[in-house]
Simulated assay, not measured.
Amino acid sequence: MPQALQFNAQNGEVVVHGDLDRNTVPKAWAERQQWLPQQTDVVINLEAVSHVDSAGLAMLIRLRSELVANQQTLTLRNLNKQLQQFAQVSGVEGLVSIS
């Protein structure tokens, strides 16, 4: 059963919980102003993401582009193997900073 996607601010980063996929991305994107830090660089911790698909990767790439236009950076932490493989196969691992 799919897990609802949640964003929680903790220790200076946004911790993502649940599924980051085509079912959850549209709502998460529409609500990004509620969970996205303003005027600071953004660190997203993905250790609690249970499932990800290409829509999740696309959202992170689009988020990075939006932040760069606002002179902010995006750093991703604790990517699961699935997301790392999507980024590698898609040839976009260089588009997001991974720590």
Rank of each mutant, 00 (worst) to 15 (best):
N70I: 02
H51S: 15
N70A: 09
V96N: 01
Q6N: 14
S50T: 15
A28N: 03
N45V: 12
Q82I: 05
E93V: 09
A48G: 00
N80S: 10
P26R: 11
E31A: 14
S97K: 14
W35Y: 08
F7M: 15
V15M: 10
A28H: 01
Q84Y: 07
M1V: 11
L60F: 03
G12A: 09
V15Y: 09
V89L: 15
D41A: 08
F86D: 04
L83R: 06
D21E: 06
Q10D: 12
A9C: 05
N23P: 00
A9R: 14
R22F: 10
T73W: 03
N23W: 03
N70W: 03
F86M: 13
S90W: 06
G18P: 10
A28P: 04
Q71T: 05
V89F: 14
L83I: 08
L76Q: 00
A30W: 00
G12K: 14
V68T: 11
F7A: 15
Q34G: 08
A9G: 07
Q84M: 13
A48C: 11
L74Y: 01
S50V: 10
Q39H: 14
Q84D: 12
G91M: 14
R77E: 14
L20Y: 03
S65I: 04
N8C: 10
S99T: 01
K81D: 13
A87K: 01
V43L: 04
Q33R: 12
L95S: 07
R32H: 12
D53H: 08
E47G: 09
E47C: 09
G56K: 06
E13M: 07
G56W: 03
A87P: 01
Q71L: 10
Q84P: 01
